[in-house]
Design a protein around this nucleic acid. Structure first.
Length: 99
DNA sequence: GTTCTGACGCGGC
DNA sequence: GGCCGCGCCAGAA
């Protein structure tokens, strides 16, 4: 059980239509400052069972991932995740509370 | 064991 | 309000 597995386990618990930030997941893993490590774990995510598209920066900005550019946003929209006009995820409404 | 890098976060200018 | 720099943790070389 590496740190990655811990992060993945949390990400898999994110319900459809919800989104979480790297810092939030880092906080749940027990290392509030490990946001970078969390992001790195997501970057290495190749398992389709892990909804890594529901994880983004604190600002709601989505970075391109291994699945392809633009795919992440499409998947989120398909799940009903609200987006702001400037192309960011509206974390104010779909932010996952961790439960 | 040491060093560098990275899907980040926050404070300061 | 936007841009720059430093610090954080974990993994790979």
């Amino acid at each position: 059980m590496s740190y990655y597995d811990k992060v993945y386990a949390l990400v898999r618990q994110i319900p459809p239509g919800r989104a979480a930030t790297y810092g939030q997941l880092a906080l749940m893993t027990g290392s509030p400052r490990a946001s970078r490590a969390v992001g790195y774990a997501m970057a290495a995510c190749t398992d389709s069972a892990i909804p890594c598209h529901r994880v983004m920066a604190r600002d709601g900005v989505i970075r391109e991932h291994a699945f392809g550019p633009g795919v992440q946003r499409a998947m989120l929209e398909a799940e009903g995740v609200p987006f702001t006009p400037d192309g960011r995820v509206d974390l104010a409404r779909c932010r996952w509370d961790g439960r």
